[in-house]
Design a protein around this nucleic acid. Sequence first.
DNA 1: AATGAATGAGTTTTCATTCAT
DNA 2: TATGAATGAAAACTCATTCAT
Lengths: 204, 204, 204, 204
Amino acid sequence: MTDRSVAQEAKRRQLLDAAVRVFARKGFHTARVGDVAEEAGVSHGLLYHYFESKDELLQAIFVATWTELLESLAAVEDSGEPAREQLRQVAAILLRSWRRQPDVVRVIVQEIGRGGELGSRSADLRAVVDSIERIIRRGQESGELRAGLDARLAATIFYGGIDEFLTSWVFGLVPDGDDAVAAAERTLLDVVCGGLAVGAGAPA
Amino acid sequence: MTDRSVAQEAKRRQLLDAAVRVFARKGFHTARVGDVAEEAGVSHGLLYHYFESKDELLQAIFVATWTELLESLAAVEDSGEPAREQLRQVAAILLRSWRRQPDVVRVIVQEIGRGGELGSRSADLRAVVDSIERIIRRGQESGELRAGLDARLAATIFYGGIDEFLTSWVFGLVPDGDDAVAAAERTLLDVVCGGLAVGAGAPA
Amino acid sequence: MTDRSVAQEAKRRQLLDAAVRVFARKGFHTARVGDVAEEAGVSHGLLYHYFESKDELLQAIFVATWTELLESLAAVEDSGEPAREQLRQVAAILLRSWRRQPDVVRVIVQEIGRGGELGSRSADLRAVVDSIERIIRRGQESGELRAGLDARLAATIFYGGIDEFLTSWVFGLVPDGDDAVAAAERTLLDVVCGGLAVGAGAPA
Amino acid sequence: MTDRSVAQEAKRRQLLDAAVRVFARKGFHTARVGDVAEEAGVSHGLLYHYFESKDELLQAIFVATWTELLESLAAVEDSGEPAREQLRQVAAILLRSWRRQPDVVRVIVQEIGRGGELGSRSADLRAVVDSIERIIRRGQESGELRAGLDARLAATIFYGGIDEFLTSWVFGLVPDGDDAVAAAERTLLDVVCGGLAVGAGAPA
DNA sequence: AATGAATGAGTTTTCATTCAT
DNA sequence: TATGAATGAAAACTCATTCAT
C-alpha cells in the first residue's frame, strides 16, 4: 500500500511535469488536455485519475512551486544576516529558479503572476512581497537602510524588478545565461540599495 | 463621406473601449465576443463589421495603446530635461495611462509571448524598455547617473517596478487612489535613483 | 419584434416536437442531442439557442403537457356533474391523450412517471391524483359514492389503472385502437365504481 | 469445488443486492458501475469477474426477481382458493416483495420497453398480468366474479393499482409503513371487487 | 448599419471495460 | 480472487464566425 502510494505520487509528479512543459510551450488556454496526456505518454483519461480537471493541474503546479518558494524565503528571513544580504538571497532564489526550472517559471509568470486564470492566488503572490517588505522594514529599524522610504512600496519595486527579469527571459527579450542571471542579481541589488544617482551608491 | 468616416471611427473606438474593459476584466481567452458586444451595447454580429475577428480586436487595442505610448515616450526623450526628470515623466506616463487598463497590457504581453497573432509585435514591446535604457545611458554619458551599472538591466528594473505597481493595483494589494499613484511614482524615483542604502540617496 | 418572438416561439415548438419524437423512440438517456437536432433538421448548436441543456428539453416537454392537462382536470372538477361522470371524463382525457399524442405520453410515461430523471416533478404528478381524490371525496359527501373507503387510496388505484393502460399501450402489450381505448375507459369505470364482485355492480 | 461454487454464488448475490439498491436509488443509466462496487464494498474491477457487463447485472436482477415472483404467483393460482382470496394474495405478494425494490422493477420495465439488452424479456413482463387475468377469468367462470367485464382489462387495472401504490411510496406521496401496506391491500381488494358505488360493495 | 439565428469545429469530461500485478 | 491503473469511445456543451433579413 505504501508501495502503491509511492508509485501514485510518482505518477502524479510525472503528469505534473508534462503539464508544466506543455503549458509553458503553448500556454494554458491553448494547450489541450490531450496535449498534456500525449506529452506524458498516457491517455487523456488517465489524467482524470490524478487530477479533477484541467484547472486543478494548473493549481497543483502553482501550489507545489509556491510552497517550496515560501519556505525558502522564510529561511532567509530567519537567517539573521544583514538586510542587504537577505535581499540578495531573495533575489538569488527567485532569479535562479529561472535557470533551474524555466518551464515552471514560464507557466507561473504567464498564467498566474498575471491575472489570467487564478485571481484567487493573489494572496499567495502577496506573501512574497510581504516577506521582502519585512526584510526592508527590519533593515530600516536596524539603521542599515534609509528610513524615509515606504517599505511596502520599496518591496514592490524590488519584487517588480525580479519579476521583470523573469518576464524578459521568458519572452526572450534579453540573454539569460548563468552570467546574465548573476549580472541581473548584482545590478538589482546595486540599483535598489545603492541608487542610480552619482554619489549615491556607496560601495556595497 | 468624411462624416461617415468620422462616425465609423467613433464607433470603432467605442467598441475598442468596450473590448479593453472586458479583456481587462476577464482576460482575452476567457472573454467571449458576446461579452464585448454586450459591454458595448450592440449585437455581437456588429463587431464583425468593424473588426475581422476577435484577434484583430486585440491587435487593434495593442496598436492604439502602443502607438500613443511610444509617441509620448519619444517626446520625453527629446525634451532635453535631465535624466532623472525624464525618468520621472516616463513613470508618470506609464503609471497614469495604464492605470485604467493594466490587464490589457498584460494580456497583450502574454499573447505576444505565446506567439499567436501578436507574435510579430514583440519588438514593439521591447521598445518601451529601450526608451528607458536610452534615457539612462545618456544620463550616464552626461555624468548625471552612475556609470558602473548596466543601463539595460537598470532599465528593466525600472520598468519592472512600474509594472509591479500596476499589478498590485489590479489585485487590490495596495490602495490605488491618485495619492497612491503619486507616492508610487515618487518612491520609484527615490529608490532607483537614490538607493535604499543609508548614505546613498543624497537628495537628488 | 413581435414577429421575431412569434417565429422564435414556433421554432422552439418545432424543436420540442422533434425532441418528443426522438425521446419517445430511443429514450432520453440513449438519445443524443445530435439526434434531436438531426430530427429537427438543424445543427445541434442551435438547440442551445433555445434550450439551456438536454435536461431542459425534457423539462419543457413535461411542463407543456402537464400544464394543459391540469387545466382540463380543473374544468372537469368545476363542471358540477355527478362524481361518476367526472371520473369518466378524467379517464377519457388521460386515456385519449394516448391516441392524440402517443409520443408525448411515451416520454412522460418512460422518463417522468417513473423515477428516472425528474424526481423533482413528483409534486406535479401528485396534483393529478389530488384532483381525482377531490372528486371521489365530494362523491362520498354527496352520498353518491361509498363512504367507507379511503378516498386517497381509491384515487391512487384509479390513477394507477389509467397509468397502467398507458404503459401497456406504450410497450405494445395490448391492442390500442380507438375501440380499445373506449373499452378501457368503460371497464375502468365499471370496475372501480361497480366492483368486480357479483351482485356488486348495480348498473350505474 | 462445491464449496467454491457456494461461496461464489453468495458473492454474486451480494453484488446483485448492491446493484439493486443502487439502481433503485439512482436509476440504471445514471448509476455508475463504480457506485455498485462501492455499495458492495469491492473494487469495480471485481464486478467483471462475476458479471459480463453492466447490462448483465440488470438482466440478472430481472431474472432473479422475476423467476421468484412467477413461482409465487403460480403457487397462488394452484391453491384452489376463491378468486378474491387469490387476488388478495397476489396483491400481498407484489406489494410486499417489491416494497424493498420498486424502482428496480421500474428500471427493468423501462429497459424492456426501450428494447435494449432486455428487449427480449417483454413476454416475461406480461406474465404477471397474465396470471392475474387467469385468476379473474376463472372467478368469472365459477360464478364468483361478474362475467360482463373484460378479464384482461380488469387485470390491467388491478395490476396498475398495485404499481401506483409502489410509485407513491417511492415518491413519498403516501405513508409507507406496514399498516399503510395493509390498508392499500385491503382498499385495492375492496375497490376492485366491491366497487366504489353505493350499494355496490356487498360486504365481501 | 444592425440584428441574432444558424453553423460546426473543437474541447473537456465521463465511464464502461480491460488487464497487469 | 481482488485491485485499481489505464484506455478510449462517446457525449454534452461552447463559441467564433457567417449570413439572411
